[in-house]
Amino acid sequence: MADRVGNRGYVTYALRRAAQAVVVILLAYVLTFVVISVLPGDPVTTTLRNPQSGFTEEQIARIVSYYGLDQPVLVQLWHSLSRFLTGDLGVSLRTNLPVSHLVAEVVPSTLVLAASALAIAVVLAFTIAFGVQYLPRPFGPALRAFPSLFLSVPTFLIGLLLIQLFSFQLGLFRVIDSDSGLATFFAALTLGIFVSAQIAEVLIANLDQEARQEYAGVARSRGLGQVQLLLRHLLKPSALPVVTVLALMVGEVLGGSVITEAIFGRAGVGSLVQRSVSTQDLPVLQAVVTLAAVVFVVVNLVADLVYPLLDPRVRLLAGQRRSTARPEPGVPEPGVAAR
């Protein structure tokens, strides 16, 4: 009985969160559209009437009417939104190819980069956090400085250093061959170092805090050593907030990939954005920004949906997440026997 009610609570919660996610994506689309349309500069003039593009006045008129560029902004938004909802992302102004085609071309490469960067970040962050706790005196405390160091050094500098050292000096990979395994690894490392810093800081702070909790001392009174205490007791409560941080980091990774791809000469979403901005290829920009919003929202939705399954203290009440640390005063405490 209790389980069934619990499941119903979870389903309500999940549906509510999913609905919110859809609303956020639509809002992101509208907002992008509005921002792009108020930007100075007329893409029709700069792109289509550019002699190099080779469009005839007739073609230009067709493109203009296809996008409804001659119509009021609100009507344009309506058309654009309804096309988006049917999965039609439009046609690139620069290449005249379908936007979905352009995006699909670059997404896998960025996905590989982002996923490896996140994986490297997580491994690095946990290594640093454990080292801080358990390495002997001069080394452990010294590691504490690393996260803030990683945060304060710009990504491009780390990237250039890695290229200088491992490509030019040691010749481990060739910058020209940007899709090789090692090149991808170093690109991901560049991005991962930056991302790991914020995860490591959360983890170090949480481990410190959990180690000071009453229960940690009581667990030691049961004869647990430092390593057992860490693995059995401190790790899980300290790592739970990392789920939330990781989801937020996805935004950083997407932003950081623009710079990293430029440094390592990789074709990806970042380079596509770069080209589209410089040529004012609005349909592509609109699609990429929306794609980023979708990824961000979906990842955070997953984090929200997974969290209640990991943390037993989070109870779902009327579709909302609540922490039930202790029963309210004045309300009878739920007893095991009473259930």
Binding site: Q213, E214, Y215, G217, V218, A219, R220, S221, R222, G223, G225, R232, H233, K236, P237, L240, D311, P312, R313, A325, R326
Partner: peptide, 27 residues
């Protein structure tokens, strides 16, 4: 360390904060 728990037992002051909140009592 081998003495803790085996020969020296400890009962803490505040039961509400003396067990790990995210692990079952059985564990």
């Amino acid at each position: 360390r081998p003495l803790r728990g085996r020969t020296l037992g400890f009962v803490p002051q505040d039961p509400n904060s003396s067990l790990n909140p995210v692990r079952t009592i059985g564990m």
